[in-house]
Amino acid sequence: MNFKVDHQMFLILNGVVGGLVAASLVGFALSRSVKSEDRKATIDNLNARIRAWWIMIGIFSISFVIGPAGSMLLFGFVSLLALREYISLISTTRADHRTLFWSFFVFTPLQYWFWYKGWYGLAIILIPVYAFLFVPIRLALAGETAGFLDRAARIQWGLMVCVYCISYAPALLTLNIPGYQRQDAKLLLFLMIVAQLSDVFQYIWGKLIGKRKIVPGISPNKTWEGFIGGVATAVALGMSLWWMTPFTPLQALLMSLAVALMGFAGGLTMSAIKRDRGVKDFGSTIEGHGGILDRMDSICFSAPLFFHITRWIFVAQHPLLFR
């Protein structure tokens, strides 16, 4: 697991910065042209989001340049913040305290440590098997039976989504694909770009022509028009980036589709939790976007699938696919 900033990476980072410059200019032009109060609020939020994007991409690039350790640390930190938002939103009790301590300060670092060491076998079972068993054991030792299964499930679910699933993103750096050695960082970049572009374009298409709501009970902002427009745009852009991946153009299209669909599913599922708890966002860490988890929900759901498909096809050459 090692990589260098090659020519392709340089190109794509330039592309990202170019895209942001364009977005900032459009945002500035829009803020000059709008008159009505209602529209103004939307444009202000848009500009806040663009400003936050600059910061997020800055932090992401720095961790990238540092190398795999930087990326692991960054995503580990993101997991901690996401878990903090999740735990703050759901209700936990006094008796959950020590189990939560283990979740934050033992399981989360251990998960990223296993990936960093490249211990694939341990990294994929730590939380689904061992944390799954540990959480109810520790809760039982605490001696409080009220809402027992409920409390155990909440903590297990938080660890799965905020730690296990997010950790699949930097885990891409451990893949070591034949013929693509020392270039795995571009795969992580590809996942992040497609998932985030899908979110961004679903938002833009939804704002422009969104009418028919997909699941009105969960989110008034998720419309069929936004969904189809956003996914199609992200898939087209993802396909056009095939040259930075080990994929053929067709494979890049299918991978982008998988990422965009899972990303949408992630956004929808996490909205259901927020809706149930009566809030709009998980937090207010990122200006205009809400919390870390609001920005990462699409990665939580798409990263594991993206990782495993890539691994089955390009590393493990799964016998079902390669007879």
């Binding site: 938002e85 703050s88 301590f101």
Partner: peptide
């Protein structure tokens, strides 16, 4: 009664 903290917003 606890001495180890847990992060909560």
């Amino acid at each position: 009664g606890e001495f180890l903290p847990v992060p909560v917003i």
